[in-house]
Computed example of a mutant assay.
Amino acid sequence: MPQPNPQALEFLLTRRSRPAKTLTLPVPTRDELTPILMAALRTPDHGKLEPWRLMVLERAALARLGDLAGERGAALGLEEDQIAKGRNQFDTGNLAVVVIESPVLSEKVPTVEQTYSAGAVCLALLNAALAAGWGANWLSGWISHDRGFVEQAFGLAPQERVAGIIHIGTEKAAPPERPRPDLESKVTWVSN
Rank of each mutant, 00 (worst) to 15 (best):
Ala40Arg: 07
Ile36Cys: 09
Leu65Tyr: 04
Glu50Met: 14
Thr34Ala: 14
Asp67Phe: 00
Pro28Met: 14
Ala63Arg: 14
Ala69Pro: 08
Asp31Thr: 15
Leu49Met: 02
Leu37Pro: 08
Pro28Asn: 13
Ala69Asp: 07
Pro19Ser: 03
Lys48Val: 04
Asp31Ala: 15
Ala69Cys: 07
Trp52Thr: 10
Leu33Cys: 08
Ala69Leu: 05
Trp52Asn: 12
Leu62Lys: 02
Asp31Ile: 10
Thr29Asn: 14
Pro19Lys: 06
Ala60Ile: 11
Ala69Thr: 10
Arg18Thr: 15
Lys48Tyr: 05
Ala40Lys: 09
Pro26Val: 09
Pro28Thr: 13
Ala61Val: 07
Asp67Glu: 15
Pro28Arg: 13
Leu25Tyr: 09
Arg42Ser: 13
Leu68Cys: 04
Glu32Asn: 13
Thr22Ala: 12
Pro19Leu: 02
Glu32Arg: 15
Thr22Leu: 02
Arg53Thr: 01
Leu62Phe: 03
Ala69Asn: 07
Glu50Ile: 13
Glu50Pro: 08
Ala60Asp: 15
Arg30Asp: 15
Ala39Ser: 14
Leu57Tyr: 06
Thr22Ser: 12
Ala40Met: 04
Pro19Ile: 04
Leu62Val: 08
Ala61Ser: 06
Gly70Tyr: 07
Leu57Met: 12
Gly70His: 11
Arg42Trp: 09
Arg42Val: 08
Ile36Gln: 09
Leu25Cys: 03
Ala69Lys: 04
Ala40Glu: 04
Gly70Pro: 08
Ala20Tyr: 01
Gly47Val: 06
Val27Arg: 03
Thr34His: 11
Gly66Gln: 01
Leu25Phe: 05
Pro26Ser: 05
Glu50Asp: 14
Pro35Arg: 12
Arg64Gly: 02
Leu65Val: 03
Asp31Tyr: 09
Pro51Ala: 08
Pro44Thr: 05
Met38Trp: 10
Arg30Ile: 10
Leu65Gly: 07
Gly70Trp: 04
Ile36Asn: 06
Ala39Arg: 14
Thr43Gly: 11
Lys21Pro: 00
Ala69Gly: 08
Ala60Pro: 10
His46Asn: 03
Leu68Glu: 01
Lys21Ser: 00
Pro35Glu: 10
Leu57Val: 07
Leu49Val: 01
Leu49Cys: 02
Glu58Thr: 15
Leu54Lys: 10
Pro35Met: 11
Pro44Phe: 05
Ala60Trp: 01
His46Phe: 05
Val56Trp: 06
Glu32Trp: 14
